[in-house]
């Protein structure tokens, strides 16, 4: 037997695993009865349903191919966009809004294939200044601004 659509087959298996994990994680919560449902009842129900749906998607991929292909992963945008967001999350409390956004912008601005290098510092500086003025001074959001 051959797999018609590998992408769907794998995604189905991932869903089965997710459903199983949900049931496993929910085994610590009391099931209760249908009359008085405990905190575990609905999660187990949903986990089972997700696993079944995943299995159905995988099985279907053995026979039916809807033509979708995963294609290669575009590592550059994936890593740099997520890297930018993560650096903002990790550095905000230590560095404050201005430096954290400067860094996040500098990282994420490199994610596109048509970077013009002189634009990156200008854009980063301009946008961090803009957000300082609008969000902190204008809207009064409680941000730590500088490292100290």
């Amino acid at each position: 037997m051959s797999i018609r659509n590998t992408s769907d087959f794998v995604s189905g298996l991932v869903l089965v695993a997710t459903g199983a994990a949900a049931i496993l994680a929910a085994r610590d919560y009391a099931m209760g009865t249908a009359f008085r449902m405990g905190p575990g009842y609905f999660p187990v129900l949903l986990g089972g349903l997700l696993a079944l749906l995943g299995a159905a998607i995988s099985l279907r991929a053995l026979w039916i191919d809807e033509g979708n292909r995963m294609g290669g992963v575009a590592w550059r945008p994936v890593l740099l966009v997520l890297g930018g967001v993560l650096s903002f999350a990790l550095l905000l409390s230590a560095l404050g809004l201005v430096l954290a956004s400067l860094l996040a912008l500098a990282v994420s601005a490199l994610a596109t294939h048509d970077v013009r290098h002189w634009e990156v510092p200008v854009l980063s500086a301009g946008l961090s200044a803009f957000s300082l003025v609008v969000f902190v001074y204008g809207l009064g959001l409680p941000f730590k601004i500088w490292p100290v």
Binding site: A104, L105, S108, T112, D114, L123, L141
Partner: peptide, 20 residues
């Protein structure tokens, strides 16, 4: 306005929005 200048702005505003 080219997208290469637009998306970093959206990302930053998104980060600030989520944080707030």
């Amino acid at each position: 306005i080219p997208y290469r200048l637009l998306y970093p702005a959206i990302l930053l505003f998104a980060c600030i929005g989520i944080y707030s």
